[in-house]
Amino acid sequence: MPIFKHEELEDDILHDLIEEINELYEASEQTLIELELTPKDNELQRALFRSVHTIKGDLGLVAFTPMINVLQHLEDLLDLLRKGQIDYTSNMSDLVLLLMDKVKVFVESCVKSGQAEYDSELNDAVIEIILAIDSTNQPRHEGLLAKAVNLIEPSRQLHQEDAPAQNIVNLARSGIPKNLSSEQEVDLLFFRELMKPIEKRAGYAEGRGDRIAKLAFYINALNDKPIDQAQLAVACYVHDFGISFMPAEVVNKETALTSLEQNLLRSHVYKSARLLENLSLWDEARKMVMQHHELVDGSGYPMGLKNEDICDGAKLLAILDKYDGLINPKEQQRKSKKDAVITINKEYKGKLSGHWLRLFNLGMTRLLKD
Score class of each variant (00 low, 15 high):
V70Q: 13
I86R: 08
K351G: 05
S280Q: 12
E10L: 06
N150L: 00
G363A: 00
L81E: 08
H141Q: 11
A132Q: 13
D58L: 14
E294Y: 08
P247K: 11
L316Q: 07
G60V: 05
P164D: 10
P226F: 10
A116T: 12
F64I: 03
A248P: 02
G209S: 07
H141G: 05
K83H: 03
D79C: 03
D58W: 00
L180C: 02
A221P: 00
N137A: 01
E277N: 07
P66H: 11
E142Q: 15
K306S: 11
S174E: 10
F191V: 05
N42C: 04
V103S: 04
L158T: 11
F245Q: 15
R173L: 02
D324Y: 15
L99P: 08
V52G: 09
V269P: 10
A202F: 03
L275M: 15
S135D: 14
G143N: 01
L320N: 04
E284G: 02
S182F: 02
K306D: 08
H355L: 07
E128T: 13
I327Y: 01
Y118E: 03
D134G: 08
L131V: 08
M364F: 01
L59A: 04
K178F: 14
D76K: 09
V289Y: 10
G207E: 03
K337Q: 14
S51Q: 13
V250R: 14
M246W: 04
W356H: 10
R266M: 14
S299E: 13
K112S: 14
M1G: 09
A340R: 06
K200F: 10
L122N: 05
S93R: 15
V96N: 07
E294L: 11
T38I: 13
N278W: 10
V251Y: 01
S272Q: 11
G203D: 07
K306G: 05
L180Q: 08
Q72L: 12
A285C: 00
A163W: 08
T89A: 15
I227E: 03
N150D: 12
P2K: 09
G242K: 06
L158I: 05
K330V: 04
E121D: 14
R192E: 09
A47V: 08
M246L: 15
V70T: 15
F191H: 06
L74R: 10
M67R: 15
L98P: 00
L232W: 01
F217N: 01
M1T: 07
P177Q: 03
H53N: 07
L17I: 09
A273Y: 02
D312H: 08
E29D: 13
Q184Y: 04
L359K: 12
L145V: 11
L77W: 07
H73Q: 15
L260S: 06
N278H: 15
H53W: 01
L95K: 12
G354Q: 06
L144K: 11
Q72S: 15
W356Y: 12
A163Y: 10
E331G: 06
N278V: 02
T343R: 07
Y237S: 04
L275P: 13
P197F: 10
G300D: 09
M67C: 10
K196G: 00
E8I: 09
K346A: 13
E108K: 15
K346Q: 14
T258R: 09
K253E: 04
L188N: 07
E331Y: 09
D228I: 03
D309N: 11
C110A: 10
E284N: 09
D134W: 07
A125K: 14
Q30S: 13
M1H: 05
